[in-house]
Amino acid sequence: MSVDLAQVKKIATLARIAVSDRQAEALVPELNNILHWVEQLNEVDTEGVAPLEAVVPNRTRLREDAVTDGGIRDAVLANAPAAEHGFFAVPKVIE
């Protein structure tokens, strides 16, 4: 499979990365090279093979339902580019 300019732009939109037309054009062959290279996997017969679920055998541990965190608003907001009245602030969202 290959991507064209429109697809590259769509991927960039999905990924929320602004690209200029020139950057998008440059990305077309770059991404296609990589995609064609990874498509080697089509040679592998994976009929009936279960996708890997856990890298190393391990079990889910369920946490106790106890309040052990929170109440750290200053720490949460400390790195915010914009924070006001205890909130993070972002450019106005119109719904």
Partner: peptide, 9 residues
């Protein structure tokens, strides 16, 4: 999904 299958192999 294909890659996770090959990873299993």
């Amino acid at each position: 999904r294909k890659a996770q299958q090959v990873r299993a192999l």
